[in-house]
Simulated assay, not measured.
Amino acid sequence: MASWPAGLALLTLATSGVFGLAIGSFLNVVVYRVPIHLSVVSPPSACPRCGTHIAPRDNIPVLSWLLLAGKCRTCRTSISARYPLVEAGTALSFVAVTWRMLSGTSGAGIASDVLVLTGFLYLVAMSIALALIDIDVHRLPNSLVLPSYVVGAGLLGSAAALSGDWVAMLRAGVGMAALWLAYFILSLVYPGGMGFGDVKLAGVLGLFLGHLGWGELAVGAFAAFLLGGIYAVGLLAAGRATRTSGIPFGPWMLVGAWVGIFFGAWLWNGYLAVLGAI
């Protein structure tokens, strides 16, 4: 965080955590409504059993669930613990990503850094929503994936223009095209195991990973297959899946990408050092 004053950096971390709680509450709505093609803005959230609209005092992230002991105030129906977990997890993820992005600033300017940070916080929100939806219904909705190309390219491209880092913009474009093409080929070779939703998501992840660096791109792409493969083998060994079972790969693509974002440069440099390339 060398290019940011310490006080501003701490304020940004705190603000991102509070903002993450609010976004996490919204993501719960997105995860439930988008797969069934409902508006995410209306009608207001309500108890699925008694239909009572949730009052503002009962819609405070995490706190309301704890105060109500995980039950609807009106009919006392249990409310899944996933709701506060998503809210708290989003807040923690926002803080972690803010720390990562501010620690990796190049000193090109706060305006450029803010655009990059905003882009990666957007990716956090999309990652959580898409992972949960893919787990629930085995789909990666176009309504979430496709706008991510526009948002990511707009924010990261604007940051590159402000900082003059045209190399980052080029890497982002190459990363987007390379991962999209790689997954497209895999979808043709192995149509039963790779859906076109994965192909579209791959381009988004390539865009963000490529912006950071070649190491992040390589590690993020490889980690998805490594972690997904380990999980699949574990399910087979435990008898909880067969070779023909459908296992959503989107969550592993997203987890792999975040491994690349946080640890890609370090792992890539270590790999090159072992090879004697550096």
Results as ranks from 00 to 15, higher is better:
A6E: 09
A6S: 14
G7A: 14
G7M: 10
A9N: 11
L10Y: 15
L11C: 09
T12W: 09
L13G: 08
L13H: 04
L13M: 13
T15D: 11
G17K: 14
F19S: 15
G20S: 09
A22P: 05
A22M: 15
S25A: 07
N28E: 06
N28Q: 01
R33S: 07
P35K: 02
H37Q: 12
V40W: 11
V41Q: 03
V41T: 12
P44D: 07
S45A: 01
S45V: 02
A46K: 15
C47W: 06
P48G: 11
G51Q: 14
G51H: 10
T52S: 12
T52R: 14
H53G: 13
H53C: 07
I54Q: 10
R57C: 03
D58G: 00
D58C: 01
D58S: 04
N59R: 00
I60H: 00
P61I: 02
P61V: 10
P61E: 01
L67H: 06
K71L: 02
C72I: 04
R73W: 00
C75W: 02
C75P: 07
R76W: 00
T77M: 06
I79E: 05
I79G: 00
S80P: 03
A81D: 05
R82G: 09
R82W: 12
R82V: 07
Y83V: 02
P84W: 01
E87Q: 03
G89D: 01
A91M: 00
L92I: 14
L92P: 14
W99G: 00
S103E: 10
G104P: 01
T105L: 01
G107H: 12
G109L: 02
G109C: 08
A111M: 08
A111L: 11
L115K: 00
L115F: 15
L115C: 04
